[in-house]
Amino acid sequence: MSVLEIVLRSVAVLVCFMVLPLVLGQAEHKVMAHMQGRLGPMKAGGFHGWAQLIADGVKFAQKEDIVPRAADKPVFRLAPAVSMFSYLLALVAIPFTPSTVAGDLPASLVYVLAVSGIATVATLMAGFGSGNKYAMLGAFRSAAQLVSYEVPLILACASFAMAAGSLSIGGIVHAWHPIWLLWQLPGAIVLLIAATAELQRPPFDMPVADSEVVMGAMTEYTGLRFALFLLSEYAGIVVMSALFAALYLGGWNGPFDGALGFVWMLLKTAAVAFVVLWVRMSWPRLREDQLQRFAWFFLVPLALFQLALTAAGVIYTA
């Protein structure tokens, strides 16, 4: 691999990071407008409110830039960058076809789980660095939620790794078989719910519950710094949806996958992302202690059950 190729691959990842979350954001505007009868997102630019995202971007760029006097300034300024890096780096290891992956890492599943954990650090930095009580409480909630849902997320991913006998996402997609849709169903449910919670999307948005802690750890942020947090949240939805599509829905597998593998992977990712958006628009948020009990008393046991089921299946067929 030449230097040029490394540069091209890196640029491709950066372009994906800039484009895919925006497409998702636009989709969220439109889906939400239709599902909840909202008129606002359908207005800007005329036809179907196509320019809403541009209007948002302009608005973010011209907001006044404020660093509160009480803030721990270097930490406060650096937090959006750290948050951006977690899902930007995760995007490197997502395979679109057997040969289309920006960086072919040997244990890409472990790598994606590891770098997506950086998001927790960013939220804590923002919460502690703001010198604000709402931000502090939001960061507490977020940290507790992120570590609690990390456990079922990792257990579910381990089940897929066991079923395939590989720690590489590409290797898992290669080993995928339609019977997984039934065999790995409990693990898939855990994975989808835990991923939604990791992203702090409703109904798991207690850390940013506006009626209680304003915007949680992001309360003091304005303008482009705030926009970077949003960008990384949507990039997170893209990464988690792609992960779910690859592990459970078979990634690029589909009719004519020699030529159309890319399309299948994108369609599956889009479908999962749509479910994540849909859930946001339909369900109220869980209370903090309900949310924790749900993780420890429902998701963790279900994930362990899935591990036992997978182990039994692997031993039986081996």
Binding site: I6, S10, V13, L89, L91, V92, A102, G103, D104, L224
Partner: peptide
Amino acid sequence: SGLLGYLVVLGVTLGGVGLFTAA
């Protein structure tokens, strides 16, 4: 091939620093 993959990670990291600086 594993190490080459990590070179892309390095490239994306540098690109990310550039992106944040530009923003």
